[in-house]
Amino acid sequence: MTLQLHKVSVHHAGAAAHALALRELSLDVAQGEQIALIGPSGAGKTSLLHTLACALRPASGSLHILGSSPWQIASSERHALRARMFLAPQTPPLPPRQRVVNAVLAGRLPQWSLWTAIRSLLAPVDPRAAWEALGKFKLQDKLYARVDRLSGGERQRCGMARALVSNAEVFLVDEPLSALDPTLAVQTIHVLQAEAQARNATLICSLHQVEIARACFARIIALRDGQVVFDLPSSEVSDALIEQLYRNKMDTSPDFEPIDVDLNAARPRC
């Protein structure tokens, strides 16, 4: 298995010691799998991605990443392990005055020497690689634009292009579609999935777009309150399961009637 968690509990970053973001969560992920994480806000999706990226240390339980126990090895080995993964946050950390070409090529920083990184800031080392990655997201014309001239959706796709130039074996992508229209959202997922498949990399993507998750991913993991609610093939994820997952837990009255939403309407195709 590429990723293994057994009864892992993780504290919320910066929260009180007793506040848990993940609660005794167990999970196995094989190399090359493509998984969608879904669940209401605050369910623990981001915390799980950060835990898998070795950015959050578990309070308890066992964690194995790419054959290593990241918190039982030396910090230099852990740094090398992190370099084999790519964590894409919902808001990409792109310096506003930086050129897009440099922002994209930053995906190679874990493999570069300090000298190469500095030299690339002055004269991009491989602008063609950045141009090709941007082209997959229809952004090649932004190659030398400043980051602060991009729209929110363009910034998100720039962050995804950064993932493509990396040599990651695991893509951990957090809400990459929040600023994209439905057509661009599906196109972006297609690009990420094609890249992961081409290099047999693992892709785990948290999504609020449930129908894209159901249409595009073979396996769906649903979280709520830091625990796995279900882990199923997408073909077995019913409308009833989705309704129950997102139902307002504060409303426990017997006559509660959820809002009637047609989940089958305008379902995207992947």
Rank of each mutant, 00 (worst) to 15 (best):
R146S: 10
G153Q: 03
H190Q: 15
L172P: 11
I212C: 05
A179I: 04
C205W: 07
R219H: 12
V191G: 08
Y144C: 06
F137K: 09
L180S: 13
D225G: 12
E154S: 02
A194M: 07
T202E: 10
R146M: 07
I189V: 15
T202N: 05
V186K: 00
I204R: 04
F217I: 03
Y144S: 02
V147D: 02
V228Q: 10
Q140N: 11
T188H: 07
I221F: 09
V229D: 07
Q209P: 02
A179T: 03
L192E: 13
L172R: 04
S151R: 11
L203R: 13
D148R: 11
A163S: 08
A222H: 10
E154H: 05
V170G: 11
L177F: 01
F171A: 09
R199S: 11
A161P: 00
E154T: 04
A168F: 13
L203N: 12
L184E: 14
T188R: 08
P182A: 00
A215D: 08
A185P: 04
G153T: 07
R224T: 02
L184F: 13
A194L: 09
D225W: 02
Q187V: 05
H208R: 01
L207I: 06
A218Y: 00
P176F: 13
V186I: 09
Q156F: 14
C205L: 15
V228M: 10
Q156V: 09
A194R: 14
D225C: 06
Q197R: 15
D174M: 08
R214W: 03
T202P: 12
D181Y: 04
Q197H: 10
A179Y: 03
M160T: 03
E211N: 13
L139H: 06
A194T: 15
C216F: 00
N200E: 15
G153H: 05
A213H: 04
R214C: 03
C158N: 03
Q193M: 14
Y144E: 14
V229T: 13
L150A: 07
L207P: 05
C205G: 08
R157S: 11
E211T: 14
S166G: 02
I189C: 15
G152S: 10
L150R: 10
E175H: 03
V229C: 12
R199N: 05
G226H: 03
Y144I: 01
L203C: 12
G152N: 06
N167H: 15
Q193I: 14
T202G: 14
I220F: 01
D141N: 06
A201I: 12
L177C: 02
L184T: 12
R214S: 01
D148T: 07
Q187F: 04
F171Q: 09
L177Q: 08
Q140M: 12
T183M: 11
R157N: 03
C216G: 03
